[in-house]
């Protein structure tokens, strides 16, 4: 299967996105922001539809829309315990407004159903070299920002009130992290589609957290699992002709179920 350019590009794109999804996803799950990951990838779908309507590459629209939504979600005022009191409401409303815009963009672009299918389910086999370079750029930027934020983000995620009391600028950290998450969601959506992008971010990270691993081991496992899911999905898709997102979604749920089973057996 590696004799074809499109398969080599697909494996490289999947690798880049997996490293990003595994790392960002671990922090998203730690901060209980699975809904944000779900919403950001869907919001990216609307941006992609708008970009296509205006004649730009879909990835550019995904990045712009996800980033704007990330800033709005991350900038919400924090409550007394360091967690925004209306976080889910804010995310839900931003998502609803974006999906409305997305439907209008699809209507205006006159490419409704075929474009929607591509954006919602992804087209990993259609990744070309310019898209691959763009994905690499997004990944380097996101991982660089995460490395810079790292320790303060971890402290603010584990003990928000204590971190603020010690002088961690929790709101700034939250805004920058949501911007990183938005970019990562847009990149993942390019591979797995808007509907299943978050499965690559949430599944491996949730599995790593379920196993009770510390930050370094947890992130390493999360990245490894994301890689196994995306590459495994590509291989199984090649063999079975079933779509890649199908295998990624199924694998994510299965890995979490196995981790849960292992914990239960171990605790007996």
């Amino acid at each position: 299967m590696f004799e074809f350019d499109f398969m080599r590009h697909a494996f490289m794109g999947a690798a880049v996105v997996s490293v990003l999804a595994g790392t960002v996803g671990w922090f998203l799950m730690l901060r209980r922001q699975a809904f944000a990951a779900h919403a950001l990838s869907h919001i990216g779908f609307s941006g992609a539809a708008g970009a296509v309507w205006l004649g730009f590459p879909p990835l550019s629209g995904m990045v712009v829309f996800s980033l704007m939504a990330g800033f709005v979600i991350g900038a919400e005022r924090e409550g007394e315990r360091g967690i925004p009191a209306q976080r889910d409401s804010t995310i839900g409303l931003v998502l609803a407004a974006s999906l409305g815009l997305g439907a209008w963009f699809l209507h205006m672009s006159n490419r409704g159903s075929s474009l929607a299918t591509t954006l919602l389910f992804g087209d990993v086999l259609g990744i070309d070299m310019p898209t691959l370079k763009a994905l690499c750029g997004v990944a380097v930027l996101c991982l660089g920002l995460l490395a810079f934020l790292g320790r303060r983000l971890l402290f603010a995620s584990l003990a928000p009130e204590v971190a603020r009391a010690r002088g961690v600028p929790a709101r700034l950290v939250s805004v920058v992290f949501m911007a990183v998450a938005a970019l990562a969601c847009a990149a993942c959506a390019e591979v797995a589609g808007a509907l299943l992008a978050f499965s690559l971010m949430i599944g491996p990270a949730a599995t790593a957290l379920k196993l009770g691993l510390g930050p370094l081991a947890g992130i390493a496992l999360s990245v490894g699992l994301a890689l196994a899911l995306s590459w495994g999905g590509l291989m199984l898709s090649w063999v079975t002709d079933a779509p890649v997102p199908f295998w990624i979604g199924l694998g994510a749920a299965l890995s979490y179920a196995l981790a849960d089973l292992w914990r239960r057996v171990r605790s007996r």
Binding site: L30, R31, R32, A147, F148, L149, G150, R151, R152, L154, F155, A156, S157, L158, A159, P160, V162, A163, R166, G167, V168, L209, K210, L211, G212, L213, G214, P215, G218
Partner: peptide, 21 residues
Amino acid sequence: AALLLPAVSHVRAAVDGLRWG
């Protein structure tokens, strides 16, 4: 938060949580 993480991870995060990088 993060109730599945070992207790020691929570303390390590506080030890150098004021540093960037």
